[in-house]
Amino acid sequence: MTVNSEPEALLSHLQNADGSATFSFSGYTVVGAVNGPIEVQRRDELPEEAAVDVIVRPAAGVGGTRERHLESLIQSTLRQIILVDNFPRTLIQIILQVTTTPENEYVNAKVAQATSNLPILPALLQTAVLSLLSAALPLTATLTSTSLAVVADGQSKKVVLNPSPREIETSQSFHVFSFTSHDELILAESEGSFTVKEWDEAFSVAQRQCCPPTNTDDGDTLMDDGSLPGANLKQFIRSTLEGKIASDLHWK
């Protein structure tokens, strides 16, 4: 099985949604669509801010309790970065459809509830942010999200970035971290068995990954990405949007 190690994205490719994006990274592909601000149902209406509604659809089957869990995590995270105060009594709806998930070649996984909920979370968050940017909704910050596993390597332990399903299964602990573009930790989900010290190590690896030193304000100076072990997602979001804007303004 080939897993693309470079993130790929396609922006504003759905005609009828306000904003849309397809994002694929480390075996996951997610299509996201954003509509908003739109009219809200009376019972969901909030008098002073916009209601944020997230719908996650799995690659196979219908959504179950696992999708509700992911939705509630994504909803509470996105509510923090969308300027909900600007759109009182409206709804911002985010639909995330998973299209590809990496296969675990060691087990014949069942469709429902067989594996952990967390590995898909970074891809979902990343797609949601790209769709929101494509919908031109005002945000306080963008997000970068990464997953890592702590794997026993003989006596010592090593941290694997963007682990494969097999690595997650054999790992001792699995972590998902999300940082805002102001380098603040906004979401942390970990499971397995670990010490606070190990969590700290995982945290600092994730922080290096998600919050690279930002001397990139003037566009294309940061070319020495070789020091980073994985893809620079912050830079990726920026360059994807720059490319999109450049092609949109090509007629000028």
Binding site: L73, S76, T77, R79, Q80, H175, T180, H182, E184, L185, I186, L187, A188, E189, S190, E191, G192, S193, F194, T195, V196, W199
Partner: peptide
């Protein structure tokens, strides 16, 4: 020994 950490909704 920590088994789960779950933090969301703020910074």
């Amino acid at each position: 020994k920590v088994l789960t950490i779950s933090k969301s909704g703020g910074t």
